[in-house]
Amino acid sequence: MIRRAVCLLLCLLAAAACTTPGRAGPRVSAPAPAPALPDGHKGGWTLAFHDEFDGDRLDPARWADHSSAEPDEGRGNLGNQQLEWNRAANCRVGGGELVMTARRETVTSPSSGQRYDWTSCLITSTPAYAFQYGYLEERAILPAARGFWPAFWTWQARGVDRHTETDAYEFYSDNHRRLYGTQFSGARGRCEWRPAFDPTAGWHTYGVAVEPSGTTWYADGKRVCRSDATSDALTAIISNLAVYSRIPPEPATTGAVKRVDYIRAWTAS
């Protein structure tokens, strides 16, 4: 009996030592999460660039808030049926997402003197990432009110002297049942489809695979279009919320938002 009691006491002491606050036990490292694949894909791609928007501000190491695609100081493009002046103040990161906000407010370009009656948000990966071939994906909720033109696309990188652009999607918010993709490079190709969902009513993924053999568009992981046309130079990623001058917002509309959960880019494995 005495020997059994001593053994039991030793076992209890050992258990207590293992759970004593401040005492370090063996360290077991959690396995690193596997790189995410494009929605609906089981392989063939390696994650090369991404932003999950988990911080509290736009990451300047990944994004700039102006682009050479906008000729007025990289922020405005009235000649392209756009009413907005883009600026970082309209790009808010928080709660695990990027919120792009278009606001009805007046700004005058300091260089051109042009007046803009809207402000909005554009981001580009120009400081951090450019590619010719790869897979792009954005998970987003698009604005519902009439008069807005959100898009996810690419634009020629610095040093490229010709128009090189791939549109993963464009959406004109007066028509919730139509999405457009375009390959502006090389032979050029166009994709137009009617989604089975309302892009303004919930989260959906929009992707495009730009490969030497052609360009393929995806929505929620499902292939929707393909073209033999493909990119012929390096491009940077752009996501933006434009205000459309041809079908402008109603006079009573003072703003709209595009919400982005993540942006990711892959290269072929």
Rank of each mutant, 00 (worst) to 15 (best):
residue 13 L to G: 06
residue 5 A to G: 01
residue 9 L to K: 01
residue 183 Q to L: 01
residue 107 V to A: 06
residue 94 G to A: 14
residue 15 A to K: 00
residue 29 S to V: 10
residue 248 P to G: 11
residue 238 I to A: 03
residue 132 Q to E: 14
residue 229 A to C: 09
residue 165 E to P: 00
residue 162 R to F: 12
residue 23 R to T: 09
residue 25 G to F: 07
residue 188 R to G: 01
residue 123 I to E: 03
residue 111 S to T: 15
residue 197 F to I: 13
residue 88 A to H: 01
residue 55 G to F: 09
residue 85 W to D: 00
residue 268 A to D: 05
residue 58 L to Y: 05
residue 28 V to M: 08
residue 20 T to W: 12
residue 206 Y to T: 04
residue 180 Y to V: 10
residue 193 W to L: 03
residue 63 W to Y: 03
residue 258 K to N: 13
residue 211 E to P: 01
residue 160 V to Y: 03
residue 173 S to I: 00
residue 190 R to Q: 10
residue 128 A to N: 04
residue 109 S to R: 00
residue 184 F to I: 00
residue 100 M to R: 06
residue 99 V to T: 15
residue 215 T to K: 05
residue 151 A to D: 01
residue 228 D to R: 12
residue 53 F to T: 08
residue 162 R to E: 14
residue 85 W to T: 09
residue 162 R to I: 02
residue 6 V to N: 04
residue 27 R to F: 12
residue 202 G to N: 09
residue 203 W to M: 08
residue 127 P to W: 07
residue 250 E to F: 12
residue 3 R to P: 03
residue 201 A to I: 10
residue 138 E to S: 13
residue 4 R to D: 13
residue 87 R to M: 08
residue 241 L to F: 08
residue 11 C to A: 15
residue 88 A to K: 13
residue 93 V to F: 05
residue 194 R to K: 14
residue 80 N to M: 02
residue 64 A to G: 11
residue 252 A to W: 14
